[in-house]
Design a protein around this nucleic acid. Sequence first.
DNA 1: TCTTTGACGCTGA
DNA 2: ATCAGCGCCAAAG
Length: 109
Amino acid sequence: MNGDFEEKVLRIVKCIPAGKVTTYGLIARAAGNESAARMVGWILNRMKFNPEIPAHRVVNRNGMLTGKWHFETPDLMASLLISEGIPVKNDRIDRFKSYLWIPELNHCE
DNA sequence: TCTTTGACGCTGA
DNA sequence: ATCAGCGCCAAAG
C-alpha cells in the first residue's frame, strides 16, 4: 500500500498522448488520492531526469505551466508543448479545455 | 522535533 | 474576477 500511489502516477503520466495535457489534480484522482495533487508534482520533480516521463504534459488546473522552472531551461516546457501542437501563451495553454486529457487508470495499461 | 516550503485545488468573501 | 485561507503530506534545515 505504499509507493502504490507513485507507481500509478508514473504509469498515468507515461500514457498521456502527445498533443494532449492533463493536470496534477486529475492524475492524483485517477491514482486514488484526490487530495494529493501536490504529491504528484513532488514525484515528477524527482523523475525529471527520467526521459520516460513526459512531465511537460502536466499542468495545473488552469492550464498554467507552473512547473516550467523545474526544467533545464524555463522555456523548455513551453517549447515541447508547442512542438506537439499545443498553443502556449504567457505560460498558459490557450483553449486549455480542448487539449485536456482526462486520465483513467483502467485506460492505460 | 518543529517549522517552512512547495510542479495543487477548493471554498468563501 | 480576485484574493486570502485551509487541507494535503513529503522533504529539507
